[in-house]
């Protein structure tokens, strides 16, 4: 499938800021299931961008502004050729051994409810790690209804499960937390999902990956109860949201911020 992405992100401030920086993890890399045909980032003329890479191998584009400004707009345009790999990730150089992804983080620390959920999935599974991961995906999705605006970027896995509502980030966090608890290395993935519609998207997407002995890293899009297909574009990964977030930044001055994201994801079939 050929997927076109067009994402405009605008930060508007109540007053002038004199310094901003944003670390962007928005640049996808090739793997066996996706080939990047085109990718561009455009930024305001008063901003500088540096390129780097973090320990996970995620490309970083860091934007710096050191003069007075009250708005920053970024535009990402991309075209990606995808194929369905049954959710199995191949063709990625891994910086860490799978066992590393058993590390807990503040956002994914399991509480009693998550431990119970993990234990019940272990009991129900046929003993294979793949079956366990699928059961975890079902149980997490059953426990958390999809609803926008109920949680925020800092919501922990434990809070999301207790709340019972959340978005893809929360589904991924609870899955990761429970999977690690059950002994399955797991990590957070940010990316895009094409859906058959012609309207704008509220946000980019997120899912989880679990390490399945014999298969390698396998994606679990918990929010949609599927393993990633050729409708998914994988961008960045980390132990949790904070490490794979599309943008993290800091600014001096400016007062209150208004964030606007306009995202279109189109498939080749409906390309004009």
């Amino acid at each position: 499938m050929r997927i076109q992405i067009n994402q405009q992100t605008s930060y508007r401030y109540a007053g002038p800021a004199n310094y901003s920086m944003q670390v962007l993890r928005m640049r996808p890399r090739d793997n066996a299931g996706q080939k990047i045909l085109f990718w561009s980032l455009s930024v305001p003329h008063f901003a500088n961008v540096t390129q780097g890479e973090d320990a996970f191998g995620n490309p970083l584009d860091t934007l710096y502004v050191s003069r007075l400004h009250s708005e920053i707009s970024l535009t990402i345009s991309a075209e990606v050729e995808t194929t369905d790999t049954g959710g199995i990730l191949r063709g990625v150089e891994e910086a860490f051994a799978p066992v590393f992804f058993l590390r807990e983080t503040p956002l994914t620390a399991p509480d009693e409810a998550i431990k119970t959920l993990a234990a019940s999935a272990i009991t129900a599974s046929d003993g294979s790690p793949l079956d366990l991961a699928h059961r975890l995906m079902d149980r997490v999705r059953d426990a958390i209804d999809y609803r926008i605006g109920e949680t925020h970027a800092e919501t922990t896995a434990a809070e999301a499960l207790a709340h019972g509502f959340g978005v893809c980030q929360d589904h991924a966090h609870v899955f990761i937390s429970a999977a690690r608890r059950a002994g399955l290395p797991a990590r957070y993935v940010s990316g895009y999902l094409w859906e058959p519609r012609d309207t704008e998207y509220e946000a980019s997407h997120a899912w989880a990956e679990a390490y399945i002995e014999g298969l390698g890293w396998v994606g679990f899009d918990v929010a949609n109860r599927i393993c990633p297909t050729d409708a998914h574009v994988r961008v960045a990964c980390g132990l949790d949201y904070l490490e794979a977030a599309p943008a993290r930044g800091l600014r001096r001055g400016g007062g209150e911020e208004t964030l606007e994201v306009r995202l279109r994801v189109d498939a080749g079939a409906i390309q004009q």
Binding site: D54, A55, A95, F96, A97, V99, F100, R103
Partner: peptide
């Protein structure tokens, strides 16, 4: 032992490869 290092709180994996 590998796990004693890579699961250790003081292991700053962000430094891997720096």
């Amino acid at each position: 032992p590998r796990d004693q290092v890579i699961l250790n709180e003081t292991y700053r994996y962000q430094m891997q490869g720096v």
